[in-house]
Write a protein that binds this DNA or RNA. Structure first.
Lengths: 228, 228
DNA sequence: CGCTACATTGAATCGAGTCAACACGCGTGG
DNA sequence: CCACGCGTGTTGACTCGATTCAATGTAGCG
């Protein structure tokens, strides 16, 4: 695992990040002020209710954004990948984080000071617009999730979650601990396991060790759309 | 019921709306280009999947924003009041509405052409920032609702919903059809009725005809927080 | 007065959560 | 090389909250 900080200009995640809207000089500036940071699998990047001091830009790895209940149950709101920003909304509104970010695998991310982020916002209209679009997408996705939780039984939500994750991972294979998959779907481990077991029996997916592979995405989509 | 279009400058909702960030000349301009529209109780303002052509600004009344499932169940995402904007996200992202807006009572709202809205965005940074904050709030609230649906049983969600609505209505009395209240909570009418019946028996609320009055907000908050 | 829409209550059913036991893979240390 | 333990995955049985279906009650209005 590389521990050297990547350059923003040549970072593999650059094309997927909003920083690709920056001018060369802006990029240069961010590159100078950012600090690279490595997070081991399971490590917490920031906590719900903590105060933000910087923007995170994912260079590699996978991160879950989640809320936890007093009962200890976790609801994953989103899974973030390389190129994604983390914590921008808390910075924009100047409020504490309202979810926790945890590395799901070894993750490398760059930390950009709040001041640089704010400067960029004010100087680069395209960047600001893209950020607005991003926040709109967050809102829409969360609202979709609300409807989904309300309308669909676990089976439908599992189907949808698998499709969503496959898109996010850009692969038809999903490798996520059962517990996390359950938290993403909004259920408990045991129920999730029974549900994917059914899908396996129906030959819509295969399960090899922890890896879930989507065989028939159309059927999954159909199961998911049975309700909404 | 007044059917004359209010002036933006003197509209009762002005102080509650983002338009209060406009300069006098901007306000004047919006006022000239807007069209007032009256919606009767139950009337649909815009439909999920329809394409937006304008911004709505509520002058008076109450509007529900909701999604509907194929099974016919409805999930209310938000209840909007005078001063609130409707449909801004669809305009910002240039995408179809992803929820339906319906008048819950006789509602008067002003229709601002998309072009005026976009102009304003580009010319008034404060307005744009406030809009960003608004979208961030939408996202946060939706994410809270996700966690709530996932963590809390109906009783807890009812308690929270009553508190939320009381805040939104700026009153400790809530007058909403049972069906809508249920859709807001994310359950069905019968279950909701049983739940508020319990709260009534515990003297935490009173129910007079359709009107629910909050007697002990602290107990409600406690019930709501038992889980999250 | 009777109609219609909304509210309420009861009984039956079912999906999903909880609890408990067990299986499997993997790394560590004897 | 095997035994052990730990984390994760899986399965079964039980329980319960919430939905559904059906019936009845009540308010408001032409």
């Amino acid at each position: 695992m590389k521990l050297t900080t990547p350059d923003c200009q040549t970072c593999a995640a650059r094309g997927d990040s909003l920083f690709c809207l920056c001018t060369p000089s802006e990029t240069e500036n961010i590159n100078e002020h950012k600090i690279g940071n490595f997070y081991k699998k399971g490590q917490i990047i920031f906590h719900e209710n903590a105060h933000p001091v910087c923007l995170y830009c994912m260079s590699s790895g996978t991160v879950k954004l989640s809320k936890t209940s007093v009962g200890g149950r976790e609801q994953i709101l989103r899974i973030a990948h390389s190129g994604n920003f983390l914590g921008y909304r808390a910075l924009l509104t100047n409020t504490p984080y309202h979810f926790t970010a945890t590395a799901l695998e070894d993750t490398y991310l760059c930390v950009v000071p709040k001041s640089e982020f704010i400067n960029l916002l004010h100087n680069n209209a395209k960047f600001y617009e893209a950020l607005m679009a991003l926040v709109c997408k967050d809102a829409e996705e969360a609202e979709n999730k609300v409807a989904e939780l309300s309308f669909k039984p676990v089976r439908g939500r599992v189907a949808e979650a698998l499709l969503l994750l496959a898109t996010a991972y850009k692969s038809n294979e999903i490798s996520l601990p059962r517990e996390d998959l359950a938290s993403f779907v909004g259920t408990v481990k045991e129920t999730l396991i029974r549900s994917i077991g059914e899908l396996r029996d129906e030959k819509i997916i295969t399960i090899d060790k922890r890896k879930i592979k989507i065989i028939d995405a159309n059927k999954l989509a159909h199961i998911s759309n049975l309700y909404d």
